[in-house]
Nucleic acid binder design. Structure first.
Lengths: 364, 364
DNA sequence: CGGAAATTGTTTAGTGGTTGAATTATTTGA
DNA sequence: TCAAATAATTCAACCACTAAACAATTTCCG
């Protein structure tokens, strides 16, 4: 119960437009001022909240002390390995990016162990820089363009990987040896990154959208009511292999007419309007099945959003049963190529936000 | 917290293979025997649990008192209106069907108010019969073949309905006037019915599957980790209008090549193998997107499951990216045509199971 | 300028619900 | 017949929250 209320208070403080007073948090949560005071004391002592200058006065009464997330406490390390770059970033509890480094280089010819070693150096440098800034890196998450199960990269076709234990490789770097490291799919994490980026403080609405990542392959991350849906075995989001033209072009997966053959980066270079139509058909299926109100286009789609938009929307209007009742909103990714890395870092700080009690226990 | 723990105890008792003792419940939940005793006392006093004969002895010691859900307490009233029948059933807390009546008659030529009045009579009779049996009907849920939003049937194409307040019509029946009545989509409720039917006590696994209902139209209900996914606006599951052949047959929805045109009841009568292939293509999309491990075929598909199976599975093998890693299981609906009605009744008793504290408060 | 009103935050006593240990009840088995 | 084992209850202690009183600090208004 205390753990739950700690999280409640922390979230209220995080999602307020201005740093709220203890009394404001109490009003928002339904708890008593006394209870909130006690909880806030713990959160301040544990280095998650700080008192800041009060918000502008509104009337009579003792001035309030504003409560805000600390920018000197726990931080998340976000890592990404993709076909043409390696990247690392550190995000603090407030969601601010405190460190960011991207190394462009084609990873396809690079040996797998080599690539992971380079990423490890990048990650170690990021951690040291962050800790010199007074941050405490609480964990790391790695985004990979492939299927992940049980922490292993089962298959990443465009990297040529199969059954790779990327977390173990990173843990072999001495500076990272004590970090909890998890691995997840790039589209899933990018969806989480977009979720955080599109979240405006004070807005209590729970977002639902499909993030579509157009790279060499096409992946998708589904966010429902503010939560990522991973599928039973973590293999959801393979929109690239949704059938668009049942007897169409053969795909490297063995089937025919997969979306990837019509809207992957190669196809995109050939014919953007064909790509838009194919995307529209596949996305219509998603909306009919899942009633998703928003679709976010990321990866290679983001920069050419304007070109694709009309072609996709035409198919959505035609093929979505409820299009007449409420249209589907289409928008480009806000974070561009950083989405996955940012989402990866977010998972770490989100874990602290969701269970501050666990963080406080670290000091006992 | 007490409310949460009451639900925890009730669920443990409900999901045990044999009626468990208080001590067994304590061990399973992690609560103390003292706490469990206090909670069980309340549940017994409130008429949700009963003490039954102890399970077979295992060794020395005082014999245990078995705890089981009562079959004389709250019950759910499940109603269904469909194209060719009206139906009502009453399900008790243990999940047993205590009353069931189906009235076959084509509803399409019937006036909407007329049909609802007939259903109201059916429902009133069911309630009286159930209460004569010592049950207390806690609420009713109505299954309709159409889109439901804000409690209204927005559109039910095969009944010719539009913006119908079915709950209000039923509440006009004097015997039902005091019941909470909700309305939901037929495929959604059928999915819930199948969920309960496929749930074997003692099996803690949370089920995930897609239920596909082949009627005049084709609907689907998606259950993820034991919970129905309704979509942001409650309009999920419109698999009938997923595009299968982009330039195929025109559909009454205005698009071309919808699944319904290839696997709806009319198409099914013409060519079962074409229907199987079309279903296979659409279902592959679902599995690629959502990583659903099980697909249940209901409605008109259930009786001809054997004929459809191979055709569907062939497409799944070809088109599902992860088919090689783990195959998708295909099975016919266990409840047949009763699935939606049973699921409707289940929603009521599930509400009591999930929040027993609310039920106990009725008596204060 | 001074006191009433307003508002924040803390203190203190009280309560509900849980835990842990001791106690009672009832059986099996030597 | 009595010790051992298991089930369930009782009771004191404790934790976290609530309610209400109180202290601190400001604004408002005569």
């Amino acid at each position: 119960m205390r753990a739950h209320n700690l999280a409640l208070v922390l979230h209220t403080a995080a999602n307020s437009t201005y740093p709220p007073s203890r009394a404001a948090v109490a009003a928002a949560t339904g708890l008593t001022r006394a209870t909130v005071s006690a909880l806030v004391d713990d959160l301040v002592a544990g280095g998650l909240l700080v008192e800041v200058d009060p918000p502008p006065r509104t009337g009579a009464g003792r001035p309030a002390a504003g409560l805000a997330l600390t920018s000197a406490g726990p931080a998340g390390l976000g890592l990404e390995i993709n076909v043409d770059y390696l990247a690392a970033c550190v995000v603090d509890l407030t969601g601010a990016v405190r460190h960011r480094q991207v190394e462009h280089a084609d990873q396809r010819p690079v040996e797998q162990a080599q690539a992971l070693a380079t990423l490890g150096r990048l990650a170690a440098a990021a951690r040291l820089a962050a800790e010199a800034d007074g941050l405490i890196v609480a964990g790391a998450t790695l985004a990979v363009p492939g299927l992940v199960a049980d922490g292993l990269v089962r298959v990443a076709p465009n990297l040529g990987w199969q059954d790779v234990d990327a977390a173990a490789a990173l843990l072999a770097v001495p500076e990272l040896a004590d970090l909890p490291i998890t691995v997840d799919n790039e589209a899933n994490l990018a969806a989480l990154g977009e979720l955080r980026a599109s979240f405006s403080p004070g807005d209590g609405a729970r977002h639902s959208f499909l993030y579509v990542s157009g790279e060499i392959g096409i992946g998708a991350g589904l966010v429902i009511d503010g939560e990522l849906y991973r599928g039973v075995r973590g293999w959801s989001g393979e929109i690239g292999h949704v059938t668009v033209y049942p007897d169409g072009r053969p795909c490297r997966c063995g089937a025919r007419g997969c979306l990837e053959q019509y809207a992957g980066q190669e196809a995109l270079a050939r014919d953007e309007q064909l790509a838009a139509a194919a995307l529209g058909i596949a996305l219509s299926a998603v909306v009919n099945l899942l009633d998703v109100p928003v679709i976010v286009l990321g990866g290679a789609y983001a920069p050419i959003f304007g070109t694709l938009r009309e072609g996709i929307e035409a198919e959505l209007r035609r093929r979505v049963l409820t299009a007449g009742l409420a249209p589907v909103a289409l928008r480009p990714a806000a974070l561009g190529p950083d989405a996955a890395m940012r989402g990866a870092a977010d998972t770490i700080i989100q874990a602290v936000r969701d269970d501050p009690a666990a963080w406080l226990r670290r000091f006992t």
